[in-house]
Amino acid sequence: MSSRVVVLTGASSGIGRAAALAFAARGDRLVLAARGADDLTKVAAACGNDPLVVPTDITRRGDLDALLNRAVERYGHVDVWVDSAAVMAYGTFEDVPPEVFDHMIATDLLGSANVARTALRQFRAQGHGTLIGVSSLLSHVTVPYISAYVTAKWGQRGLFRSLQQETRDAPGIHVCLVAPGSVDTPIYTSAANYAGFVGRPPPPVDSAERIAARVVRLAGKPRPSVSVGATNRLIELGFTLLPPVYDVLVTPLMRRGGLSRQAIDGTDGNVFGPRPRVEGGPGRWSRAQVGAVVAGAALVAGASVRRLLPRN
């Protein structure tokens, strides 16, 4: 098992943190980057083996240049770059302040482009490398109340698909995209919120560790895209083949499954700067809660189908 040099942007929490721990367990040499220095230091301590810690804001291209320079100065090259940095905002499009919407796009889409540009420049220079972007099921379907996140993830998927085409001339360079479904991470509780209730991942919910394991596997055996989630394909199928039913279901399901009953005042969360995060949150579902959401969805779906059926 060969040791690799792995750069992780968004390494301070959630999937990025879990991936850092998984790569460290494998014996890889790590470069950890995110906006929050304190959280990065904690992750580095948990990883062991003296990772390089470089506080970085991916919306700033100069920060990414400095990150790459530090990585190459220490290790000489970069084998894998994993980007999971993202922020989120809850609320209808009209309720989310324009500056919050714009900065989310700057982070989740333009930031991803900044990372890709920096990584590919290094990969071209050395002749090899694997770029892994952490996307979302929401790069394939739409849901209400998180329009900025959906917009960014659809754009990111288009970008990475283009990059896969543009790097066909370099067999040693791989561009991959992982699309998880719901994952229990702090992004929901640290998000900007103008919906009145704290967000949560709708069921079924995967652990960050499961997604991280797939990321590590992808680094060893690159593939253009991987979907991780028990119901991802079913949701995509409904979105594509039954849009009228999907559109009727998605709003009540988002209200019941994607928003907790924990009230919250309007806040810009961690969109403009790092804030302390707590792993987990109101994302852990009991079997009774999951059953209630599924039963409610079935009732709404049945009523919707009946309305769509032709009447004599």
Rank of each mutant, 00 (worst) to 15 (best):
D83Y: 02
D83A: 01
S84F: 06
S84E: 10
S84Q: 05
S84A: 12
A85K: 09
A86R: 09
A86K: 00
M88W: 07
A89P: 04
A89G: 13
A89F: 10
Y90Q: 04
Y90D: 05
Y90A: 07
G91Y: 04
T92I: 02
F93Q: 13
F93A: 14
F93V: 13
F93Y: 14
F93I: 08
F93E: 13
F93D: 02
E94T: 08
E94M: 08
E94F: 13
E94H: 15
D95R: 09
D95F: 06
V96L: 06
P98N: 11
P98V: 08
E99P: 00
E99G: 01
V100H: 10
V100W: 08
V100Y: 06
V100M: 05
F101Q: 04
D102P: 00
D102T: 07
D102N: 08
H103G: 01
H103W: 03
H103I: 00
M104F: 03
I105E: 07
I105V: 15
I105W: 04
I105Y: 12
A106D: 13
A106F: 06
A106P: 00
T107M: 13
T107V: 11
T107F: 14
T107R: 12
D108Q: 09
D108R: 04
D108K: 01
D108A: 10
L109I: 00
L109K: 06
L109H: 01
L110T: 09
L110C: 02
L110R: 10
L110P: 00
G111S: 09
G111V: 00
S112L: 10
S112R: 03
S112V: 01
A113Y: 13
V115H: 11
V115Y: 03
V115M: 13
V115K: 01
A116D: 07
A116S: 07
R117L: 08
T118S: 14
T118R: 07
T118W: 05
T118M: 02
T118I: 01
A119P: 01
A119N: 05
L120I: 14
L120C: 00
R121I: 07
Q122P: 01
F123W: 10
F123Q: 03
F123I: 01
R124D: 15
R124F: 11
R124C: 06
R124K: 11
R124V: 05
A125G: 04
A125V: 11
A125H: 15
Q126P: 04
Q126S: 07
Q126R: 12
Q126T: 14
G127H: 13
G127W: 05
H128V: 02
H128S: 14
H128K: 06
G129Q: 09
T130G: 08
T130K: 15
L131D: 12
